[in-house]
């Protein structure tokens, strides 16, 4: 399972592309919460997607707030996963739930959140807003207060879905900072452009032809620019 990406076999006609994501769930900022919190994460993705390496879900340590004036929860929790797919539709999302304890010691969810993994290679920082569902009626509000049970999502992957959200009312409280490093493979070979620089510029073919064929002395000044274009087409 260690994988397609570490062995670097040169597939000339790939049918899948790979997406390798490393990173960490760095910190949480919850000004209105004071109990100890831990994080659970998992990924939600479409039918065409498969994980080829790494952990698909995990649970962090339980952290207290830092005692400086930032009062952050530092989880510093690693993420490392590799996906393969034939189609960017259903791009994986990172789903996070924050768990804590209320004053009676019962486990409660302090936040749900989801974010798409970044689509372009490089380092990315995401601030994920965290929210919890609200009771949908005054009666439910009363029963949840009387039984000291807060509303929770029956399926925590609800936050990664676009449909059916009009019926949910949430209360957002704080955010989680996540960093990602993204590497992709064979996206360009399958025709996909995720950064502007991979789009070949039609006139660049002419420019690179000029660069490889310097005929006059005046070409000296023109060559560097032409080389830039030639690099972009490769």
């Amino acid at each position: 399972m260690q994988g397609n990406i570490s062995t670097f076999n040169m597939a000339s006609n790939p049918s899948v592309f790979l997406l390798m994501v490393t990173g960490q769930i760095e910190t949480g900022d919850f000004p209105s919460i004071s109990d100890d919190l831990y994080v659970k994460f998992n990924y939600v993705y479409g039918q065409d997607w498969v994980t080829t390496a790494g952990l698909e879900e995990g649970t962090s340590q339980t952290s207290k707030k830092s005692q400086d004036d930032r009062s952050l929860y530092a989880w510093n929790f690693p993420l490392d996963v590799t996906f393969k797919s034939t189609n960017p539709f259903g791009w994986p999302q990172l789903v996070i739930n924050i768990h804590g304890q209320d004053v009676f010691g019962t486990a409660v969810v302090r936040g749900y959140g989801a974010v798409h993994l970044p689509i372009s290679p490089g380092r990315h920082v995401r601030h994920m807003p965290m929210f919890v569902p609200e009771s949908s009626s005054h009666f439910q509000k009363f029963t949840s207060w009387a039984m000291s049970r807060r509303p929770e999502f029956r399926d925590h992957n609800t936050v990664a879905r676009s449909e059916g959200r009009e019926v949910t009312r949430v209360k957002s409280q704080g955010s989680v900072r996540v960093t990602f490093n993204v590497v992709s493979r064979d996206m360009k070979k399958l025709g996909y452009d995720v950064v502007p620089s991979t789009l070949s510029i039609p006139s660049a073919a002419t420019a690179s032809a000029m660069a490889s064929n310097p005929t006059t002395g005046a070409g000296a000044a023109a060559v560097p620019t032409a080389n830039v274009f030639a690099m972009k087409t490769s």
């Binding site: 000004p31 929210f131 609200e134 676009s162 449909e163 959200r165 009312r169 957002s172 409280q173 704080g174």
Partner: peptide, 13 residues
């Protein structure tokens, strides 16, 4: 989906 509706958020802060 080409259209939809978001959740209602009542932020604490």
């Amino acid at each position: 989906c080409k259209e939809g509706q978001s959740q209602v958020d009542i932020p604490v802060d």
